[in-house]
């Protein structure tokens, strides 16, 4: 009786191995799940969280930021520096300096959420690379926008 069970187990084991091999062979004929980066890239979702960027006011082309510094105060990693002053003849303050220390940023998005005027948004940059870290310790977010100063 024992021998019978033993042989049965061996045969059963053998067939379980064959089942496993059938699965992997099935995998060969399945479409690959990977994407051949950089020739093609996976689609980014709408809510993708890249590093933050400053939005421009549509009318003036100046940054929307009013330099209230609530983003800088709320940042868990203290990686935002904002200063602002009033341009001549204007009523509201505007940011004249908005720097992001991207080496510290954890992309949590609290700054985007807290901004009272919706001046910040996530960029869709995901392949950032540079030869020096200085490029990311002080990222000037106002650089590409117009300035009243």
């Amino acid at each position: 009786m024992m021998e019978c069970c033993y042989i049965k187990e061996v045969v059963k084991g053998f067939f379980s191995l064959c089942t496993g091999m059938r699965v992997t062979m099935g995998n060969v004929f399945t479409r690959p799940a990977t994407v051949q980066w950089p020739r093609e890239s996976a689609p980014l979702p709408d809510r993708f969280r890249g590093h933050i960027m400053m939005l421009a006011d549509d009318a003036t082309g100046y940054p929307k930021c009013i330099a209230c510094t609530s983003c800088a105060r709320n940042c868990p990693s203290q990686c935002i520096i904002v200063t602002g002053k009033k341009p001549e003849g204007a009523k509201k303050k505007m940011a004249d300096r908005f720097e992001l220390d991207f080496t510290k940023c954890s992309l949590c998005g609290l700054c985007v959420e807290i901004c009272p005027v919706g001046a910040l948004d996530f960029s869709r940059d995901y392949a950032l690379a540079s030869y020096t870290r200085n490029d990311f310790t002080t990222m000037d977010l106002l650089q590409e926008l117009g300035s009243p100063f």
Binding site: T24, M25, N27, V28, T30, R31, P32, A33, T34, Q36
Partner: peptide
Amino acid sequence: KVAGHMQFRL
């Protein structure tokens, strides 16, 4: 190649 294709890769 065999490894790749058995693992949904190329």
